[in-house]
Write a protein that binds this DNA or RNA. Structure first.
Lengths: 213, 213
DNA sequence: CGTCAAATAAGACGATCGCCTGAAATACCG
DNA sequence: CGGTATTTCAGGCGATCGTCTTATTTGACG
């Protein structure tokens, strides 16, 4: 069997099993078997260990998402200044849409989302360095639109986490014929997270903190 | 050793290890050892299996949270009708505060939050039936304030998931001297999730769906 | 066609897992 | 104080894990 197809089958089996049962809950033996390999050396040979295999799973989908997000951010920047609400929704869409497109990708897209969610929850954040960095670019573009410096960072991370949590849940269910309504509503809510303003109570606590560093 | 203290030590060890390493990623042997038991029968004897032990961990903290939330909901109902925004923030607070109080509970409160997050992500939702049902009561009180029937359910679940995800992250870090700012800001954002309105695009997709069931 | 490197197969190693059995120790109570 | 039930200890069972070593097959190329 050609090396390329074996690698591909291993990656496909891994993304499915990582999604269904958890990255660390599935044995390398089982992945090998599910990929049609009779015994357990093919995986060792091509990927070394579990981390190498996981990296390969992510690399399979990452470039497409990065490209789409960069494109949306290009369009956002080209469009020039927008009213605050519209700007935030555009940016929320740039966060959500590229990942949400994976819901309709029959080649493991849904499994990829479920794997990503597991990584988003890891602390410290063990996501492989963003390389292309479309998320970093997104964060920089969002920053000036957010309310208060002290909570800005937190607010952005919450938006990202919510995006992956909700997409992973959607991907865990049976495939839907149409994810447009779900996606649009998720963008609405993520926009609301980004647009959420600090309450009087929060502002007061913030002021107290500044006095006592 | 008295039975009661052994049970207590097992539960404490379990909640810590469940939180740090994952409910299914820790062996019963290790929990037994961490609790000071020399060999592995005490756990079997008192709890049967992993699920029984998990139930005991949850039962240790659940009543306190349920009581606090029911109290906040009592106050909310007693206060009579409020402006929409104030009502939503009161309800968001009733969702967040009882759980957030666990951040400052030195007796495993932080570990409990991290365990809860793992359960919130399980699909199908394998949380033990709400018993007291303060969350059910919360859902009923929130419903009439939310925008569109078709997305109402989704919006409430997102608020709940976000609450536990963010609290678990906070609980994963080092204990803070003061969680009031964090909690108040989380309430702000959860309120925004609940208050988020459907965009034009979402409304249009919603209308399309109604035409084609 | 022959050769050499890449890729796959086969099997075994020690470690650890959940679970079980049977005996010793402890607590409880008439 | 004595007897019974509850709780803890000691150890082993089969299964499975990740990893390693060695042998066989496959494919590209002069």
């Amino acid at each position: 069997m050609a090396a390329e197809t074996t690698v591909r089958r291993l990656v496909d089996a891994a993304e499915r099993l990582f999604a269904e049962r958890g990255i660390d809950a599935v044995s390398l033996r089982e992945i090998n078997t599910a990929a049609g390999q009779r015994n357990s050396t093919a995986l060792q040979y091509h990927f070394g260990d579990r981390a190498g295999l996981l990296k390969a799973v992510l690399a399979k989908h990452r470039p497409e998402i990065e490209a789409r997000r960069h494109q949306l951010l290009d369009e956002y920047e080209a469009r020039g200044p927008l009213p605050q609400a519209d700007a935030l929704r555009s940016l929320a869409a740039a966060l959500v849409r590229p990942a949400a497109a994976k819901l309709a990708d029959p080649d493991g897209g849904r499994d990829y989302l479920r794997v990503m969610e597991q990584l988003v929850h890891r602390v410290p954040p063990s996501l492989p360095e963003d390389g292309g960095g479309s998320i970093d670019r997104w964060r920089e573009l969002v920053a000036p639109l957010l309310p208060e410096a002290a909570v800005r960072l937190h607010q952005r991370f919450m938006a990202i986490r919510m995006t992956y949590v909700e997409l992973a849940r959607r991907a865990s269910g049976p495939p839907a014929r149409d994810d447009r309504l779900f996606t649009s509503h998720l963008i609405d809510v993520v926009s609301a997270v980004l647009a959420s303003e600090v309450s009087d109570e929060t502002a007061r606590l913030l002021a107290e903190r500044e006095q006592r560093p």
